[in-house]
């Protein structure tokens, strides 16, 4: 029987959906439920990871330490994971203390073509005796050959798995199969996949990834994540069971966890809004959605126009300041007629 590890992004990617206003109560309630369901890895933190609370991408309600401390106390079976982007988080400012709070798995991420900035954070994690994964974000912006080159760098730095993210929710199943298949055939370490649901492909793309050889799949309960949300974790557990793919997760408990998220944490259940669909089509980072909506309102322009313009300029995650610039330019254009 095929086995996959499901890595749970609910308390990290879901932070985007709440504009980074996760509370301790949210973390306690969900961590207990995820642990009871036997979800192998539970990620916690700001949507853009450790040390990312900022005016640029959104200020966290809780600081990183409070989030990790709270989660750690309520996870016994599940391992505690964090997302770390060099450029936001440094070893001295951020990563060093994360280990004091009992982090087990560090997912060191970069834009899909910039793997060499992950070297020091991956090495440092390994030196601490913890598990390090490499994460290539916005992976639709590179072809499979480039992705493999970058993934090989991460593997050489010591990454024990490489996960490609469809951060914009831009893939169709054959795109996933093509890239994941190429990585799985050429890497020594396991390959992972992280879906977003902007084009309604979250589950289908995750299935395609497993069929192409992925062994780690990210999901979020009730899909709670940036933009249109992630692959819905409890659905994945059910679908994988149908396909004879073992996750080790208790379906009833996973459903309970998803109900808790819906009842106690989320403001609205993730759905493919018009803006999220455009975000996926234009290939722009899902985490931009709330910022784009704010800027559209502030400058009285169409959020869809902002997304298509950002897509044309090939912006990457972390460039949220471009949203304001583009909104201002669109406003000027309208004024000039």
């Amino acid at each position: 029987m095929k086995k996959v590890i499901i890595s749970d992004a609910t308390l990290r990617d879901g932070s985007h959906a709440l504009f980074h206003k996760l509370t301790k109560e949210h973390i306690v309630a969900y961590a207990l439920a995820a642990d009871a369901a036997g979800i192998p890895i539970v990620e916690v933190g700001h949507g853009n990871g450790l040390g990312a609370s900022s005016l640029q991408v959104g200020l966290s309600l809780l600081d990183d330490r409070e989030m990790l401390e709270t989660a750690r106390k309520h996870l016994s079976r599940s391992r505690l994971g964090i997302h770390v982007i060099p450029g936001f988080a440094t070893i001295n400012n951020d990563l060093r203390f994360a280990f004091d709070y009992g982090v087990d798995v560090v997912r060191v991420a970069s834009h899909c073509t910039e793997a060499d900035i992950t070297e020091r954070h991956i090495s440092y994690t390994r030196e601490q005796g913890k598990e390090a994964y490499g994460v290539l974000m916005m992976s639709h912006m590179a072809n499979k050959e480039v992705l493999l080159d970058e993934a090989l760098k991460m593997q050489a730095y010591g990454a024990e798995a490489v996960i490609i993210m469809d951060s914009a929710g831009a893939y169709l199943p054959h795109d996933v199969q093509d890239r994941v298949g190429h990585l799985a055939a050429n890497l020594k370490v396991p390959v992972g996949f992280h879906a977003h649901n902007n084009l309604g492909m979250g589950i289908a793309n995750s299935v395609a990834a497993v069929e192409a050889g992925a062994r780690i799949i990210d999901g979020a309960s009730r899909g709670f994540g940036a933009g249109a949300g992630n692959a819905q974790l409890e659905v994945m557990v059910a679908v994988f069971a149908r396909l004879g793919i073992e996750t080790g997760i208790d379906l009833y408990r996973a459903l309970d966890a998803a109900d808790i998220v819906e009842r106690e944490i989320m403001e609205t259940t993730p759905y493919i809004s018009s803006v999220s669909l455009v975000s996926g089509l234009s290939g722009v980072f899902s985490g931009f959605a709330r910022h784009v909506n704010l800027a559209a309102k502030e400058y009285d322009v169409d959020a869809r126009d902002i997304f298509f313009e950002l897509g044309a300029r090939k912006v990457v995650g972390g460039q949220e300041d471009k949203i304001v610039e583009v909104a201002m330019e669109l406003q000027q254009k309208i004024k000039r007629g």
Partner: peptide
Amino acid sequence: AILNLNPA
């Protein structure tokens, strides 16, 4: 301080 690299 935050630094982004953009490959466009």
